[in-house]
Nucleic acid binder design. Structure first.
Lengths: 232, 232
DNA sequence: TATTGTATTTTTGTATGGCAAAAAACAAGG
DNA sequence: CCTTGTTTTTTGCCATACAAAAATACAATA
């Protein structure tokens, strides 16, 4: 005879497919990248449990995931805190990202189907559209779409995973990449050239363009850190 | 007034510095890479708890870590199992490893101190010594040393982390790289050439040599999978 | 008042036990 | 042998507990 469970949890979601733990991890991820939790901020387990309405068990497991992603840092017997991106770490991240995105570009040029090429080009068009009528949300969405297509066409899940983690990590910085008009135009032009190289199956060129692009992003990110932390 | 605790757990280690959970994770990692747990094998939580003498709480958190490392795979409501390396995944891993090790080589050539260069060369000498009087354990140890020096000198912790995870993952394959005499000699020669390039600060050459080396390793690994899984 | 030392409260790390729901194992009937 | 129904396992999550570490508050002394 089963005891009456009574709904031991009221604010339980409709039990959507992904496990509760994954939902928690995702919500925390979002909270961090959207700046709701600031870098260096300490995360008290009980507090988070209350705020999110889950048990410590689930919460702590979710925290392990974020820890593995490098998004939060554990100091033994002191607890979790949101990782702070030092200049050093950021440089490291972009060095890695440069190589992996370059790899993805190369692989896409080599393996992508014509449909994927087409899809990529269309997402660039969408991006151009977003630039004409800017909104941060749309920008994030379309840019994410672009990357998803690129990574799918590259056909390397391992690289895709790592790049996705890297993207989440650096999105903490919220580098306000270009609101200026000409910067946007140039960006789109670069992306179209990138697509051209891919469609021409010109691996080397695609690689080169990609490296340059990440290089610029790195510079922007690093200067964004520098100005937020005047360490002179 | 504190209640009598009585030692709620007898087989508790001497509480060495790394937390219990990390110990568990490490033990499981080892069990997997040493082949004690076979690929595809299912891991039952209760069983592992009993075998390792820890609670489900700690065990499950440790499992999350391994999951993030890609070492074990979770199927919802079905539990954990040791990840199986498909040909596809292995190719992906080596593509990534090629780029990241190449990067490490480049960075080492650019940044390593003369002492680190020296240390690297000495570890190659040690490796040559091991070849003369072979033992698997010594081989693993010295090779690990070599990589540690390389990654330290490269000064990129992010890349280092990823490469360490990759090494763990592929060590599951246990590619019996060379027992033959001339293969060993050639390997040492290649490593010395690599050191030469690094000491000459010749980034491009170091990169090139590194890519070639990983390429060979990839071929070996892939053929090792092919023969263990005759999929015709 | 500043400082140092002690007591109190928080918070982590880990353990236990419990239960619903999914999956697997098993048994019975076609 | 296949299918269907029943029992056992196992997962996913929750609540609670408590020692040990850390943070904090507090008191006493210089």
């Amino acid at each position: 005879m089963p005891t009456t469970p009574i709904a031991q949890h009221m604010n339980l979601r409709v039990k959507t497919l992904p496990g509760l733990r994954e939902q928690v991890a995702e919500r925390l991820r979002m909270a961090i990248v959207t700046g709701h939790f600031k870098p260096g901020e300490r995360l008290i387990e009980r507090e988070l449990c209350d705020r999110m309405g889950v048990s410590r068990t689930s919460l702590r497991e979710a925290l392990r995931e974020l820890q593995a992603d490098g998004l939060i840092t554990l100091k033994p017997n002191k607890g979790m805190s949101v990782s702070v991106l030092t200049v050093e770490t950021t440089r490291s991240i972009y060095e890695v990202r440069r190589m992996l995105e370059g790899l993805a570009a190369r692989l896409f040029a080599k393996r992508a189907t014509p449909e994927q090429m087409q899809a990529l080009r269309e997402s660039v068009d969408e991006l151009a559209e977003v630039y004409r009528n800017f909104s941060p949300e749309a920008f994030i969405r379309v840019k994410g779409q672009f990357y998803d297509i690129l990574l799918l066409g590259a056909g390397n899940e391992v690289a895709a995973d790592m790049l996705r983690r890297i993207h989440t990590r650096v999105s903490q910085l919220r580098v306000v990449s270009l609101s200026s008009e000409e910067r946007a135009q140039r960006s789109i032009k670069e992306l179209r050239a990138f697509c051209d190289a891919l469609e021409a199956r010109d691996e080397d060129l695609a690689w080169e363009l990609c490296l340059d692009h990440v290089e610029k992003a790195a510079t922007a990110a690093l200067s964004s850190i520098a100005e937020s932390q005047p360490q002179d």
